[in-house]
Design a protein around this nucleic acid. Structure first.
Lengths: 127, 127
DNA sequence: TGTTTTCTACGAAAACCTTCGTATATACTA
DNA sequence: TAGTATATACGAAGGTTTTCGTAGAAAACA
């Protein structure tokens, strides 16, 4: 499942991908109407999607005069890919150090710590 | 301690910062001799440091004809700052989601999971 | 003193990211 | 049919990042 050819989406690309993950395949118009796209003009969104198609982040299918775009990688897969790259660059690939950094950076509260502990339980069961 | 004006160092900048954190204040020459800088020419390293000075990542002090550079932010502080930004961008600021992503992306082994559990114990003690 | 080394400063190129504006083709409408 | 709305395509500007090359000053040396 770890696809090394997957490109790392940029910030703007991630915003568009989230819309696609949430709503399924969309036209430029549909994406542009989403509140998280209010910041951009229509052609900006179009341009992003054209670039994302080139990069292989989304697929494109003609539907009448318009194009329908679809995310090529699942949300989870993409997030893991991004985490992996970040962990490599900043924490020499060490999950322990990343988690340490995340917890102290976020001043995670007791609730969150408990949730994370539960998460560990689940992961250890799987092994 | 959370300094919002701290800029996010880029990948190259992070490599130079690591050398400064490890060795203390250095001249360009000293940094350039470090093995992790073999990839760059001398003036490339110099240019990076000039930019980092402008950005406020390092301070510069004349020492004879040369300049001595020093990291302005501690390693821990910088890593937390980077994690915070990444967590915001990719995981909507949720440490739980970041940790989940990190653990499944890295396929952390039993040892690492145990270490992280120990880390949680420490953090919960502090509260 | 003349040459070589060793500094910094500056400029610039190539790649990527963000953002539109304009052009052009197609469909709808009055 | 003339005009408006709606598609995509393309180009380009301005910013950042990475990477050097060259110029000029200062120091060391022969």
């Amino acid at each position: 499942m770890q696809n090394n050819s997957m490109p790392q989406p940029t910030d703007a690309e991630l915003i568009l991908l989230r819309i696609l993950w949430q709503n399924g395949p969309c036209t430029v118009r549909q994406i542009h109407l989403s509140p998280s796209c209010k910041q951009w003009g229509y052609t900006t969104v179009l341009k992003f999607l054209q670039i994302m198609t080139e990069k292989g982040l989304v697929s494109r299918q003609a539907e009448g005069r318009a194009h329908v775009y679809q995310a090529l990688y699942a949300e989870k897969e993409t997030e893991e890919h991004l985490v992996k790259g970040f962990m490599e660059r900043v924490f020499a690939g060490s999950p322990r150090r990343l988690v340490l950094g995340a917890l102290s950076a976020s001043k995670a509260g007791a609730e969150e710590l408990a949730e994370i502990r539960a998460l560990l339980d689940t992961l250890e069961e799987d092994q």
